[in-house]
Nucleic acid binder design. Structure first.
Lengths: 221, 221
DNA sequence: TACCGTTATTATCACTCGATATCAAGAGGG
DNA sequence: CCCTCTTGATATCGAGTGATAATAACGGTA
């Protein structure tokens, strides 16, 4: 055999800088999502993409910098997935248009949570205790969406379209209900014997969430 | 100073076996909830209760045995908190009584999630990947509640009391929506500037969840 | 072909981890 | 008091961690 067991490379191959950087980012998301910041090892992140552990400190400044870069990358994907769902200024939109946009945003967020469970897994890992990482991710990435959802919800609520629920509480109801089966996908497979990545599950899940939060806007009514 | 910095004991004190076991169990829950199994260190668990790390291997067989014992303890508390909320045989109860019991169970579960965020934190940490620990906790502790909730929900749904949502999906909507603000309490404080352990938050949260899942049974209607 | 900047690879550092062996000190019985 | 069983306390082991220094080999350019 031409290589040692588990050795990333015996025959030296060289990759373009952007290739290996992106490969390391994606690998880091999987590991950070599954194990948290401290639990993820840089050796495991590198091994997934057939790289060596010191390459992380070469292409990124540190494990912490890799974490931040991978989180930036992930929220970039989220931004693309949600782009245009909520109107920039809810006050100027018609309420029915706003409600339809809110329902559409829910469906898109559920799909994203299913395709990228790492996002909510990382949030859960970071958000159990105050830290510099939590402060950064909250202010840099979470707050814009939190504010937009809160504003839209309060507009709909005051117009009588939805239940009289505090917008802070609504945000956590929504995020928790949308992400739980994908964050704990391994449990779903054991408990329900179903794969939550199945498009049928994702679709039913999204419609259920729309049905309970925006009764009357469900696709099936 | 009479003791080294961070040293649990300089002057030797002896505690009853049951006392230190229970102290270690509670400390373990906090650490396992915040950091997961691998992330929690036995030294930190011991230090919280002014004990030494080897005492864990003395009073419990291993870190894994301590984890299992602390999870057993926690689900014991959950069982007490939920005792009697759902009728043993939903088919024999009147549907309106079943619905009231379901709403009551939601309120109790939200309160428990707020008082013991470790439970859902531990589940999230364990449920991201298949493992012996996940299989054990699922079969020993999760499945009974999952089955009871599913049966009650399907009864209510087929009687037209609630939205036509698959019971597997409903379970994860419920668990996620009920636990999220307490699992990520540090984020709530940063983002909303509110403490989710506040009784007012807990009460509003529980009522909101009842309102969207069991419209018409909300305490405020 | 010779060179040089860039990247891959190896080796190693100080540190933390869970577990265990060893010894010291407590408590209760006679 | 002394004996014995139990528990506290210390030291240490091998394994794994992130980071870094040192070296080797690639790829383009002159």
């Amino acid at each position: 055999m031409g290589r040692k067991a588990d050795a990333p490379h015996n025959v030296r191959t060289r990759r373009a800088r952007t290739d290996i950087r992106e490969a390391l980012l994606k690998s880091a998301l999987v590991e950070f999502g599954a194990n948290g910041f401290d639990g993820a090892s840089t050796r495991a992140i590198a091994r997934r993409v057939e790289a060596h552990q010191p390459q992380i400190n070469y292409h990124f400044e540190s494990k912490e910098a890799l974490w931040a870069a991978s989180v930036d990358y992930l929220f970039g994907l989220l931004g693309e997935a949600l782009d245009g769902a909520l109107p920039a200024d809810p006050a100027q939109a018609s309420t029915s248009h706003l409600a339809a946009g809110f329902a559409d945003g829910i469906r898109r967020f559920v799909r994203f949570a299913a395709e990228h469970p790492e996002l909510n897994q990382i949030m859960v890992h970071e958000a159990t205790a105050a830290s510099n990482r939590l402060t950064w991710i909250t202010e840099a990435h979470i707050r814009p969406g939190f504010d937009a959802i809160g504003l839209a919800w309060r507009t709909l609520r005051d117009a009588g379209w939805v239940a009289p629920i505090d917008s802070d509480i609504l945000y956590y109801l929504l995020v928790g209900a949308a992400s739980q089966p994908y964050v704990t996908a391994a449990e779903v497979r054991l408990l329900a014997g179903r794969d939550p990545r199945d498009p049928e599950w994702i679709d039913s899940h999204a419609e259920a969430l729309v049905a309970i939060l925006l009764p009357g806007l469900s696709r099936n009514e």
